[in-house]
Amino acid sequence: MLESKLDRVLALVSAQGGWSTVYSAYPGLNEAVSRSNNHGGSPQVPCPKTGDGRTKFRLFRDWSQSGGGYHNDVGALPGGIDVIAFVEGCSKGQALDKIIDICGGDLSTVSREYVQAVKSTQPKGLNEDEKQKRVAKLEKLFNNAIPAAHDVTGRVQAYLSSRGLKTDAKTLPFTLGYADELWWGDGQSKPVKLHGLLGSMTDVNGNRITIHRTFLDSNGHKANVEKPKKLMPPPSYIGGCSIKIDEPITGSKETYIGLCEGIETALAIREATGMPMWSCYSDSLLEMVKIPENVTTVIIFADKDRSGAGLEKAQALASRLRREGKVVDIYEPQQDIPAGSKSIDWLDVYVSLGKQGFPFTLPQSVSVYTGASE
């Protein structure tokens, strides 16, 4: 039996001392390894790619075998190859080549027998029981939720208004939901029952992978908890997924969609321009989003960050999509980032300047309808 390149690379990693050898080439990952070795468990560390945040990333408890970890903005990175692909911003195939270089550059140093021995001991990711538990929780929340447009409590409308949005909540697409009872917890303190705006995160084929939750208090304002926005733990990898608020719209010659990070930012862009929008949750997931073949034109509304990460990820996405034959434009806010803030996004632009702060508006005949008051 011929071993795959993947099998041989995993064997090479094992022969060269395991994932700690690979991760020692990356300061951010080396920090995660060091803290895991020194403190045990799964200590949280800054993002190993950008250095942002203090608790963005952690290695799985079995990282020495799997190489896997979890990033708050991306979700699970099941194995070491996924982790390296994320840190390098490359494909898994390219990640294999980078790992080979780190481990000496020669796959011929591992025998077929050793490859098979390592393959037989490789962890298989989430076990089936855990996958089914996550699927069950997602289905339970989905089945107990209602479309956000059908909320009669007024909380969804109140939340939109509190963020400076004018969309009539009754016009929201059914990809956004509302839960009247939504439990928030951090695994340490006692869970709190709140309310929530929901967004289905789906893959390129429309399969629901996880649900984004914005926790709300009884007045419809963002809940006063440590992390009022959370993704539910997904049963599978979420790279390439997005919250598809709208269907792509076809004009006279092209089919287009707009992309950004946050749901509220997407709703602001819809109001200001009429553009159909997908929310990608974070700049890392924005970079990885998959676009259907029938979409010909993609408009990326990047966040403007002091670190430059928003524009950097948008440009990386644009390069990939152009290689796929799509027409791509990127727009970044022209306003200065306010003192004391890390970034400014298109929601901030909308709140301060209204429609006048945007580079274009679509003709009404092809615009999404938001019911927004002028």
Rank of each mutant, 00 (worst) to 15 (best):
Q188M: 09
D329A: 12
L138Y: 01
S365H: 12
R208V: 13
S319C: 05
R323F: 04
D106R: 07
T214R: 04
S252I: 10
A95D: 04
F174R: 14
D283L: 08
K190Y: 09
G310P: 02
C47W: 05
V22Q: 06
V156P: 02
D336M: 04
G80Q: 11
S64F: 07
W184H: 13
H221S: 14
V45C: 13
T171R: 10
K193I: 03
I102D: 10
D73K: 10
D62K: 12
E254R: 14
P338N: 09
T55M: 09
H212S: 13
T55W: 05
S20M: 08
E254L: 06
A149Y: 02
T214M: 07
A15Y: 02
T296Q: 09
S24K: 15
Q65G: 01
L2A: 12
T214W: 07
Y331M: 08
G51I: 04
G371K: 02
G53M: 03
C280Y: 08
S24V: 02
E271Y: 02
G18W: 04
V9S: 03
I243Q: 11
P248M: 01
V289W: 10
G67M: 11
E287C: 12
E128W: 07
S319F: 07
I238S: 14
L353S: 14
D203E: 13
G206D: 11
Q132I: 02
S189C: 04
G164T: 03
R163S: 05
T167I: 11
D283R: 06
G340T: 02
T250P: 01
A85V: 04
F142A: 14
R322S: 05
A15M: 10
L29P: 06
Q315F: 01
S161H: 11
L311R: 13
G325H: 08
V152Q: 15
S252N: 11
V13Y: 06
G196D: 13
L12Q: 05
G196C: 09
G17P: 01
N30R: 15
D305C: 09
E3S: 14
S66Q: 06
V349R: 04
I300K: 01
G325L: 01
V366D: 03
Y256I: 04
G164M: 03
R134G: 07
T250E: 14
C260H: 08
N38Q: 14
K229Q: 15
T255M: 13
G104Q: 08
V289Y: 10
N72L: 07
R320G: 07
